[in-house]
Design a binder for these strands. Sequence first.
DNA 1: AAGTTCCGGAACTGAATGGTATCGAATTAA
DNA 2: TTAATTCGATACCATTCAGTTCCGGAACTT
Lengths: 206, 206
Amino acid sequence: MGRKRDASRDATILDAAISILAEVGYDGMTMDMVAVRAKAGKATVYRRWATKADMVLEAVARMKREQVDLDNLPDTGSLRDDLLALFRPQPMEETERKLRAMAGMAALLSQHPALAGTAHDALVAPWVEANRVLMRRARDRGEIPGDADIETVAQITPSMGAYRTLIRRQPFDRAFLVTMVDGLVLPALGLPRKSPDSPPTTGAST
Amino acid sequence: MGRKRDASRDATILDAAISILAEVGYDGMTMDMVAVRAKAGKATVYRRWATKADMVLEAVARMKREQVDLDNLPDTGSLRDDLLALFRPQPMEETERKLRAMAGMAALLSQHPALAGTAHDALVAPWVEANRVLMRRARDRGEIPGDADIETVAQITPSMGAYRTLIRRQPFDRAFLVTMVDGLVLPALGLPRKSPDSPPTTGAST
DNA sequence: AAGTTCCGGAACTGAATGGTATCGAATTAA
DNA sequence: TTAATTCGATACCATTCAGTTCCGGAACTT
């Protein structure tokens, strides 16, 4: 007996939490902010999660599902096109938001290093994995040399993206992605650099 | 008249601030912590800086001076040796500490994006600049192709180091540096990959 | 209809903390 | 010697905020 718990409130609250996390960070986020933005009472929040940390943890873990669809990766026959197409269905703004949420968790990570794993698994690992798959395919079809260090190269775009977003505070846009792919990823894999008809230096000036 | 201000207290306090910043982050750091670790009274701290943010800002800005000595870079004639020698005089632990301090500032950066510039200039920019200088030299002496995107490649090690330290929470050690140089930096510049006698994949396994 | 659990909202509590004020001792200059 | 200013230490204040409790109303079960 009794009223059923409205499951749709969970998602609303977690969405609000992620947004605020990305905006002001873990310590800057108050439970009142989250409740207000989700148009929920604090009691409703605390009925679902015992502590602020619990709530944030689930919010971050949930993002994993919205990540790159590993079962449905682009397959154009060209590694370069595949890498660029990775950001086609899901706009880059979403990636930037995730990276900022990760930055917002930095304070949490300092105090609870175990959470670093959760955050990484949810926000970065699937992205690295997608790169890895695309590069292995390219290697198997002979597009890139067999001795390339795919494991390491697959981390370039995520880590440079994090650096750019979190520290440089510059946008993760298409120009940046192209610079990464043409200027770093493909050369590191042993492919010839693009001809100078495409602007070589877009990455960052200072 | 009156007692002179003891200038040596400044450095002691700022050192304590940086250490604590690296350990628990900006929000986790309390002024009492800093005072206790520096064996100073809070009045002594507030006599020097009006607010916590002011103190942290000066602490971070001060690290710039201890950075890589741009006027005395290694010059072995081999880019690879130069890049590896960059971490010879100053041990890697110090680099890791700086990166952690940067992570500790993440919360601050969210709220005051202007500070991101200060932090970047002090902690990362000199490092990128050093890489840039070494690579330009290598290009000028014909060791690497002229069309390499030095600007972008110079950011690889700093950004991958930040990713590894802050998000993966793994050590910034020599093996990692070697993986970066041999697996990414040199190949991206158009140099042949190392022969497989050196382990190709050390970067990170997930 | 009755009883139970949920809802959003608001008031409340207890702890933490930035910043201020004050203390006695030490240092320096006049 | 005396006055001014520093020092480390501690007490204090005002605010913020995580978490609790209560409310009136809505929804679901029996």
